[in-house]
Write a protein that binds this DNA or RNA. Structure first.
Lengths: 137, 137
DNA sequence: CTTGACCTTCACACCGGCGTCAAGCTGCAC
DNA sequence: GTGCAGCTTGACGCCGGTGTGAAGGTCAAG
């Protein structure tokens, strides 16, 4: 809780490899909290580095900021049993959603393959027709 | 080619189940061609019903309107050998893209499962702690 | 003439995480 | 004082297919 452990947004960005724009966005979305210096500058505790890391991981799973906001307190220390139970649904929902999206993409891939097959056959016919036309000409 | 075979946008929408908004959009993107009555109304040939069907199929595979524009003449009758060859790449690209997206989603799903597992373990620890706290209290 | 169904073009809204520019303040170094 | 790096908030753009609404023309039926 020492003030010395606090850093400004630029340094947090450097340490995490995340743009300042994103950090401000995470704060706006309620994912990240920052103290304020007297001049209005954001002052982040050292643990924010880890928090940002978790945010990036969760974003990378495809979860949205709304889900992550409910999920984050759960992944931190402290008596977070209740939020855990509450936000458990979000993970299950997201897993189900991912399964659905994967199925959808595989359906698309199959459809595309079928479509390509039809076109391939048609092209073969066309080539046969063209060859016959050439011979008769 | 009889004028009697032509219909206006509302009827095409009804026959295909596609909104008039989408039909106008397809025309704007160069996927669909319409004649014009003297009063400016769009007049569609009967075959447009099939064309719209193909557009929907291709859209459903995840292809964009730009790809479909190059792909459509290929799936219709006529000497479409060259466009076929040209647009073949679009299908292959899309298939590769779908494969990549599927892989990405599966990576997300796995990551989510791992994350859930970590949280589950942490929750178990928390519960153990809470139980011990209760007993000692 | 009016009503009403159908048509026209133009254009804003959406979603979501973030790039990017604008206009202005702080504070250190020279 | 001047410059510059770093900070602030605010706001537009993107991507792409489509919903939706405005403002107005066409035409047949009453």
């Amino acid at each position: 809780m020492e003030e010395r452990d606090r850093m400004r947004i630029g340094e947090l960005a450097r340490r995490t490899g995340v743009s300042t724009r994103s950090l401000r966005y995470y704060e706006q979305r309620g994912l990240l909290r920052a103290h304020r210096d007297t001049n209005g500058y954001r002052a982040y505790d050292a643990e924010c580095v880890e928090t940002v890391g978790r945010i990036r991981e969760l974003l990378a799973t495809g979860l949205g900021t709304d889900d992550i906001r409910e999920l984050l307190p759960c992944s931190q220390g402290g008596p977070a049993l209740m939020p855990c139970a509450l936000s458990w649904g979000a993970i299950e929902r997201q897993k189900a959603q991912l399964d659905a999206e994967i199925a959808e993409l595989e359906r698309r891939r199959t459809a595309l393959g079928t479509y390509a097959q039809i076109m391939r056959e048609r092209r073969t016919q066309d080539e046969a027709l063209a060859a016959r036309a050439l011979r008769s000409a």
